[in-house]
Every structure is written in C-alpha cells, then in structure tokens.
Design a protein around this nucleic acid. Sequence first.
DNA 1: TCGGCGTTTGAAAAATTTTCACGGAGGCGG
DNA 2: CCGCCTCCGTGAAAATTTTTCAAACGCCGA
Lengths: 326, 326
Amino acid sequence: MKPTAKQVAHEAGVSISAVSRAFSPGSSIDADKRQRILQVAVQLGYTSPARRTAEVISAGTVTLVAGDLANPFYPLVLDTLAKALQAVGRQLLVYAIPPQTDMDQLTPQILAARPNALVVTSARLTSGMAQACRQHGIKVVLLNRIQRDVRVNAVACDNHAGGRDAATFLMARGRRRIGLIGGIADTSTHRERVQGFREVLQEGGQSILAEATGDYTYRGSYVAVQSMLSRKDRPDALFCCNDIMALAAIDAARERGLSVPADLSIIGFDDIPMAGWTSYRLTTIRQPVTRMVSEVVSLIHDGAHVPVDETTTSILPGKLMIRGSA
Amino acid sequence: MKPTAKQVAHEAGVSISAVSRAFSPGSSIDADKRQRILQVAVQLGYTSPARRTAEVISAGTVTLVAGDLANPFYPLVLDTLAKALQAVGRQLLVYAIPPQTDMDQLTPQILAARPNALVVTSARLTSGMAQACRQHGIKVVLLNRIQRDVRVNAVACDNHAGGRDAATFLMARGRRRIGLIGGIADTSTHRERVQGFREVLQEGGQSILAEATGDYTYRGSYVAVQSMLSRKDRPDALFCCNDIMALAAIDAARERGLSVPADLSIIGFDDIPMAGWTSYRLTTIRQPVTRMVSEVVSLIHDGAHVPVDETTTSILPGKLMIRGSA
DNA sequence: TCGGCGTTTGAAAAATTTTCACGGAGGCGG
DNA sequence: CCGCCTCCGTGAAAATTTTTCAAACGCCGA
C-alpha cells in the first residue's frame, strides 16, 4: 500500500495541510516542523506527487566537478563525458573549482541540485562530502584519481604502469641522466606515475638525476625545466607527469638551443590533442579517455540499482605513443 | 483569477484527467493530445502544481550548448562562465554537440530539463529552437556569435574591429602580400573578422593575395597553410581567423623552414592561453572573455525580470596583443 | 498595555492526481 | 477469416493533495 500524506500527518502529529506545505518550497511553515515531517516522510517512504514529477524531470542529472580546465586533458574528458551522457538521455551539470582547493564550500550548492551521481576529476573529495553523498544516495565516481581515505568508485588509467613504460622506453634508448618534472605532490596521479617510473630506474641500477615540481601547469614546468637545464650535469631525458608540462619542457629546451630529442628526450603523460601537433610531436602515454568515460557511464547508468556503498575501482591500461620527442 | 486545469480541459475539449496526465511525464496519453493540451495551457498561463514546485527546485539552471570544445577558447569560456554562475548561486548544465551541427535534435532533451536560460556558443541556433524557448520563457543568449535570423540576446567581441586592427597592424609593419586563413564560412565570427580585415586592406589600396579555409581547426589550417606556402608568390603575412589555426600556421611555416615573423608574419584571434607560450608568442586579438561572461550573467541573472522578447546585443571591444609572431 | 502586522496553523474548499472500468486497435493462434 | 487476448487511451469518479480562509499566536512599536 502506498503511503499517503494522511499517514505522515498522523504519524508526525500534524495536519494534512502541514505535510503538503512541508513539501512545497516557499510556503509558510516552521522550519523545525518541516524538518520533522520530512523525516517521518522518509521513514514511511512518502513523496508528494509534485516532488515525484520534479524528480522525474530532473532525473538523470550527473554533476561533474572539475578543478583544472586549464589543462586541455580535462576539456577532452568533459567533452567525451557530456556526449556519452547525452547519448543515454542524461544531463551533465558542471562545477569548476579553483585548482587545488577541496570542495567542501560547494557541498551545499552541489547537493541542493540533487544530482543522481557525482563525477570528480582533478579535485579533492573530502570525506564529509563523500558521507553527505552517501546519505543522499548520490553515487560518486572519482575520475583519473584514486583516494584511499574515502570509499567511492574510481576510474583511472594505470598510472603506475604508465610510469614504468616511460622509464623502460627512456632506458632502452640509452638515456642515463634522467630528470623528472613532477605534478602536484599529494595527487594519486603524481605519486603513482613517479613511483612506477622510479621503480624501473632502480631495477636497472639507475636513479633519478634531478627532480623538480611543475604543479601540472605550463608555467610551473617551464620555470622548473629552465633551472634544471642550467645545472652543470644537465639531464639527457625528462619524464614530465603530464603533457602540458612536457610541452613546456620542449619549449624551455628549445629556448636554450637544445635539440629535442637529440640533446634531451622528453616524454609526457595524457596524450592531449596538442601532443600530436607538428611542432611538438610529443612522445607520451595515452590515457584511454573514451574507455574511462564509458566505464564511468556504465557505473552510473547501468549500475543505477547497485547500492551506493558497493564501490568499484577500475584501472585501465594506457598506451605509449611514440612520436618525435623521445 | 488563476487559471485551473478545468478551464484548460474545457478549452482543449478534453477531461480534467487528461490535463493532469499531460503534465505528468510517463503517463499514458496520446502524444498529439498532450501537445494540444500543453499548447492551450501555455496560452492560458496554466502550470500544474507539480510542475510549479519542480520549477522552483530546478530554478537557476543555465544550459550551455557548446559545439567545439576542441578549440581551447571554449573551455576557457566554459570555465569562466561556470565560476561566474556559481558565484551567484546558479548551476550550469552543459551540452556538447558535434561541430557544425544544428541543435534541433537536442531541443526536446534540452527543454525537458527546463533551464532558466540557454547560452549557445559555437553552435547554430535554429529558429524553431528559439521559438520553443520563447514559448517556455527561457532566455537565450548567443555567446561569441550573432545571428540575424533569430531574435535573441547576443554577446560578442567586436569581430569587425578586431579584423580591422589585424589588418592595420600588418600594413603598418609594411606587409603587402597578405594571406587569409578563414574559419567556417557561415559563422558570424568568420564573416565579420574577414570583412573588417578586407576593408582596411582595400582602404589602403591593397587586396588579399590568397585565401583559404581552415575550418577553425588545427589540421584544416595546417593543410591550407602548407599549400598556400608552396605557391610561387607566397604571402609574407597571414591573418588567421582564430588562434589554433594561427598556431597551425606557425607550425606549417617552420616545417617549411620559414622564420616567423621575419619571412612570414602571423596574427590570430582569441588569445587562448597557448598563444602566450614561449614557442609560439602569437600576436593576436584578445577577446574580453571575462567581460563577455559577466555580460551574459547580468543578462540572465540581473535581468531575470526582463521579458524574453526584449533582446539586447552587446559588442565588446577586443584588444591587440602584440607578441612575437607579427 | 494596546493595537497592528506578519507568521503559522488546521479545517474546509478547491484542485489535482490516481484508480477504475470501458472501448477500440492491433497482434496471434486456431 | 475469426475470435480472443492484450495493451493503450479515455472520462468519470474516488482518493489525495494543494490552496484558501479564518483564527490563534507572538512580536514590535507606540
């Protein structure tokens, strides 16, 4: 038997009118009373017809939180995700947040929109946010990011293997003075790429000659590479934790009159469209964006009935794209 | 007196039940009949209570339709717009559509989400869509695009003046064999930039030496420039209708062993972040993205009470950024 | 202390949604 | 080809919800 407003009213000790009012935004009712009614309603599983159609209308909304749209990799992800969601009749809400901030300030705003699912990319999910989402039954997927401190779904490229591939490739080319331009230290992408890379070097009896951080930005990397190249024993190869940093490295090397790859091999990570442009021809690890996005969509869309606390982590293989820079 | 379902039913010649069904998604009713009822409802100004609360819940949603996220200019716009809307407590829904398609297929999906406003950038708005939006009271803003065939708001950079500035600058530098790489012929951005550019040349007694189209893409421009540079009387300057095409032009010129700007001056349009990168240092016309976006937000947010058929067109000045490529 | 004035409330009226039964269209097996 | 069955669309009526209305309450300024 379907629960009615009458039952809720009786249970909460109020009139039917009050129940109706609790469900229509903007009507004059005491906040506490509304809260109590809503709570009873949840217990009994009651929703007003208005709320019901509202939910149907806004059904299928997925919210994407992106922290770094300046890195062309994320627009690529956004474009792919938007099209994939449209294809299954869902909508994509986008929040852009300043890089390296966490999303706690946005929590109320994001939850107010009642999305079905939340996709977080290049931003830090706080455990408070994760918990709030679980309570509201909102599925969360971390894209291109793994966080061990929260229990949510995650889809990422195999960054560790990618780092290994990069190192193996450089060693096979006979490079021995190898430098590293890191991203942002407390991101899983940075840690895993670096770890895989370092591992292979150590297995081959090598170690990283020089290491600097480029903040995953063009400018940060440019400055870091410039100073690294002015050292006495400058490296003959550079692994950059993402593509824009690698492009900056190429620019910095050229600025110094060095030839890429003759004097300096450079290898990136992501394979953004610009990596294939003629003046760069960047050798890089391609992230399987399309596959990552379909994984996200299947988690959200096909797995709509899966309970929110049953989480999956997908690690998809990247692919070394050999072009001219290494 | 507020209109009721009874009146709508009488007017449309159906039962009250039918009216109710027309407003609840998923109920069994003939599509034609629903259409007719909805039309009468709009005439009388009737909305079901369910629809009413739904609208309050999803209030403040703005839908962005973007056609070309591969051009870094649009992610820049997206990022700026998303942040500006967040700041005033609104949400941004994003639709990505394949370049050069119009949006008629998406119309039902977009309208189903009942946004408050629609921002269209790098996509063609059809008059059917515009009319549907007007009927639903959805405000439409064309961003970086002007269309004379539909009566909607528009915000754009002064493309005509930008084209003039580019030409003036090249002429002042003594360039006389000037080529043009166009974008997509039936876009206002292309037309106006080209027209302004051509005007100044003619005023100075010059004309365009060679003209080709690059489809606003890197690859398209690269191919066009390659063939243009292999002509006997190759140009000594090139105006490209956007920045990625200009970057492609620089790459193509270098590939041929030409020096930029000594052998070939290149000037672009947009000022995307990459234009400032060290290996390009592209001279270009900067679009005032921040101002354009605030204009859009004020049109949508501050002008929320302005009737939808009262439309404004804002043309904001661009700015010539002189770097190293011309 | 005494009126406004605005908010909150339940009862009742009004309106809407849902159920129910019916009629007709189309598919399927005999 | 016919009958039967199912499924869709429909209006009337029942059930449910929303809105109106008038009353009660508290707050503030005079």
